[in-house]
Structures are given as structure tokens and as C-alpha cells.
Simulated assay, not measured.
Amino acid sequence: MPQPTFMRLKILLPFGIFAEKNDVSRIVAETREGSFGLLPHRLDCVAALTPGILIYENEAEGEIYVAVDEGSLVKTGPDVFVSVRNAIEGKDLGLLRETVEQEFLNFNEREQIVRSVMAKMESGFIRRFAEFHHE
């Protein structure tokens, strides 16, 4: 059976498809054990990804960097599926780093607001429950 010469990469987010690329010649991903590379002829595998930079390369675009959150990578034949919570793409690592820092700052601010609202809701629920319990 002939070895595949390219891979098909699909990066999935919880709300949709972030990227779908054909003719990918190599992929580099990060796990807790460190970075590892995928070539088209590599055996099928599954890996738990850590937040970091995923790199892929194809002839049309060259080397592309994608900042990803934690997730998973599954390679089956020529198909590679990456499922993560967040992803940001860029061709320049410096600009990508700035964009990621800004996105995470915005995310942290939103997360703090949500936590504050949840804490108020929980304390209100506990207060009403205590009042109900005393009646």
C-alpha cells in the first residue's frame, strides 16, 4: 500500500471548525512530555495537547503557527484532528504572542466578571435557602 505524502488537518473548537487544511507536509504539537512531530507516514496516534504553539506546514502557505489551548490530537491515516478550546493563528511568532497575551487578558477579565456574578448568585441562593429553612 502506498504511503500518504500529505495529511489533512482539521482544527476543531467547541463552537465550530477553526481551520481545515489539505496537503499538510508536517505538524509539530506540544504535550506534557514535550514537542513531537507528525509526518504523513507516521503511525496513527492520540496525544493530549498542552497550551502552546502548534505548527503546520503546507506548500501554499508555508509554515503557520497556531496558539492553542489544551486539547487532543488524533491521527488516523492521512487525517489529523486537533480539538482545543481556543486557537489563534499567525505567521509571525512575535505578533502571535502579543495577540495571545491580549486575548488571555480579555478572557481573564471576562472570567473574573463571571465568577463575581456566580458568587453573588450563590450567596443569594444560600441566603434564600436559609430563610426558607427557618420558616
Rank of each mutant, 00 (worst) to 15 (best):
G124R: 02
T5E: 06
S83G: 11
G77F: 00
K21C: 07
E70C: 14
P78S: 07
E30C: 12
F104N: 12
E131I: 08
G16D: 01
Q112H: 03
I55Q: 14
R32W: 04
E59Y: 14
E59W: 15
K75N: 01
R26C: 09
Y65D: 07
G52R: 09
T76E: 15
S72K: 08
P2G: 04
S116K: 10
A87W: 00
A87L: 03
F6Q: 02
A47R: 15
G34Y: 06
R8C: 00
V82S: 10
A29Y: 06
V82Q: 07
G34P: 00
R128Y: 04
E103N: 14
L39Y: 03
F104A: 13
F107L: 15
L49F: 11
L38H: 01
G90D: 04
F15T: 09
R8Q: 05
L96D: 01
R115L: 11
L105E: 15
R127C: 08
V117Y: 03
P51G: 11
L38M: 11
R8P: 01
V68T: 13
L96P: 03
E70P: 03
A67K: 01
Q102V: 14
P14F: 00
T5R: 04
M1I: 11
E98K: 12
E63P: 00
H41N: 10
I113P: 02
E30D: 14
L38F: 07
V74D: 14
L95P: 02
E30G: 08
G90C: 02
E122A: 14
G62M: 02
E30P: 13
A29C: 07
R8E: 06
Q112G: 03
M118S: 06
I88M: 09
E30W: 15
E63C: 05
I27F: 06
I27G: 00
T31Q: 01
L43P: 00
F81P: 14
V84T: 14
H134R: 14
T5V: 09
E61H: 08
E103W: 11
Q112Y: 05
V80I: 12
V114R: 07
I27N: 01
V114K: 08
G16C: 05
A48N: 10
R26H: 06
M7W: 00
M121S: 05
G34A: 04
E33V: 05
E63N: 03
V100D: 05
R110A: 10
T5C: 04
V80M: 07
S25M: 05
E122G: 08
F18V: 12
F18L: 10
L49S: 06
H133F: 13
F129P: 00
L54C: 08
D69Y: 03
L13K: 01
M7L: 11
T50M: 11
G34D: 04
F132E: 07
I11P: 00
L95N: 12
L93A: 06
D92K: 10
E57L: 06
H133W: 15
L93M: 10
F125H: 09
H41Y: 04
R115A: 09
I113N: 04
K21S: 05
V117A: 08
S72C: 07
